[in-house]
Nucleic acid binder design. Sequence first.
RNA 1: GCCGCUGUGGCUUAGUUGGUAGAGCGACAGACUUGUAAUCUGUUGGCCGUGGGUUCAAGUCCCACCAGCGGCUCCA
Length: 634
Amino acid sequence: MIKMQLLLVHSLGFDWKVTEKAISNPESSKTAKMEYSTTDSSLVVFISVEKNDVPDISTVISNACDEIVSALKDIGESNLIVYPWVHLAKTQPAKPDAALSALKNIETSLRSNHPDLSIVRAPFGYYKGFNLNCKGHALAERSKEILGQSGAKTVEASAEVTTALDAEETARSTFHVLTMDGKMEPFDKFNYKGLKELELFIKYETDKDRTVSTPPLHVDVMKNLELVDYEEGSDPGNFRILPRGYVVKRLIEDHVNNMAAQYGAMIVETPLMYSYDHQSLKKYIERFPARQYVVKSGNRNHFLRFAACFGQFLTMSDAIISYRQLPLKIFEMAKSFRREQRGELAGLRRLRAFTMPDLHTATSDIQMAQKEFEEQFLLAFQYMSDIEINIETAFRMTTAFYEENKDWIVSLVKILNKPILLELFETRYAYFILKFEFNVVDTQKKAAALSTVQIDVENSERFDIQYIDSEGKEVYPLLMHCSLSGSTERVIYGIIEDQLKRSQRGSKPQFPLWLSPAQIRILPVSEDYLEFTDKIAQKLEQNRIRVEIDDRDLSLGKKIRAAEKLWTPIIIVAGEKELKEGKVSVRYRFNNSQEFQALEDVIEYVQAQTKDKPTYFRVFPKLVSHQPIFTRVV
RNA sequence: GCCGCUGUGGCUUAGUUGGUAGAGCGACAGACUUGUAAUCUGUUGGCCGUGGGUUCAAGUCCCACCAGCGGCUCCA
């Protein structure tokens, strides 16, 4: 359990001078002090950051700061010199950028919490000569090892982390385009004519340069439509969902729930937090770099789940499963948490708290797994069509798997009716041998994965999940991970971005009718027709249509404008003419048309468009004058 | 996490070399009673992201922090 090493020396005067670069990419010489000299007495702290510190770096840093501050206090010193000294490392040192970042963090953390200290940091990545003059009193020299939280991670475990990461780093992938007729071509030789989106997707996947000129457009939209907003009172990447957004989110999730239930999945709910000390979890979580929120319960540490795998695998592990019950499917709408790096967060594309529909399937063998893979693939494809998103597909698998199952893969591509990105890797670096993703390409030409299905060959053993086969023997099943729709938040992002792309081509952006917060907004021509519009609303509501009435004392033009700004799919205008003739004036967004028709025709249209889709309540006031303004405009 | 950019009423924003914070939209009040993307008049509303500092004086200069965006890295 060896961690960050500190050597603290109380010195009368200290100086250093850089001699030459020690690594290829040292700290910039513009900002660093290449030379330094003082005659004042100072506490010199030599530090080495070890690879084992990295998964738990924030705790290590804070503990190191506490050590340093307490040492300063003991000797009554306020001058501090932070000096990187890799030779102290007892295990493998951290990578240079991680180590530099840790040192900078120690420096800034001390600076902000202890403004009375005078702090100097020696530059990182250079050979330096230095002069030290130890004061020689009882507390003048000491060394410390800094531990992370609760000692949860052992050296052996960290070694495992290292192995997994290294495997990933060295794994070689090749990228190809696979067409409907089974032709495979290197991605950079393929002719993308008529396949702009696929080209953009593959470019995003394979290109290093991802420079963007425009900001993410969906952020403005999500606010203007009053769906979702940032929450400054929380951690970054934790959003607030507003009532109109709740309707959308709820419907997106209900639809996945229904799909999973009809597919024959058992629906469960499992805990949000798990102990670091549980054997199976320990093995699983240590495969990955620390990106967890940590929750203290008494003196035990828990992490917030980053997927539903834990709860569902533990549930399967405790169950008595017969081969007769396979394939065994368990589904959960799983609120999940990933403490992504600060700079990786981007609107609704990448969050720290999100909702992931997570389906796990235990299968007896690869044939059964492939059969379920295909079914889940079809369901996910259906879902993408239901949210009216254009998707680009990636299949990723080992070369061996592709060789054996080429025809089957091509048959799936035929269903999509367009070419896909095929990634092949010689050696399996992750837990899966096969996966596909449906990706959306946004207005910034960035791609994000929505649906995915993966065949997992590692975790049944790790979680000790077994079924009894026909001969009474205990067998590890093949597990499958599936997210039918992708995270709810990302679905909202995908819909908005995809619609914005369409609007850039000249059509009006809109939500699928079944997902629109208000499907119809009724505009009385003047106050005199409020009673009339209320009757219309009642009739629509009897048919489970979400409707609101703009009863504000505004000009009709202004009310139209307000309704259009909210992407309202259907606007009904009602006044003298309508009252007399018993019909309504209807403005359809999808084709920009105006009709004068019977209310029944409108109802029929909505019902036809939303057939087989879930419905939900309007969870905001019917009268626009009763709706507080959160973030919408006009 | 690192680097860079940004941060002025609910929203969009003006603010010169440091010298008393302006506007439009919205909201509120009144007038008007409106026929398919912004009716008129008036009123309200600002710890200029937060905390330090420099200065006689800070929205403006300096430092730190917070938040958002972009890049790197990452994406179980």
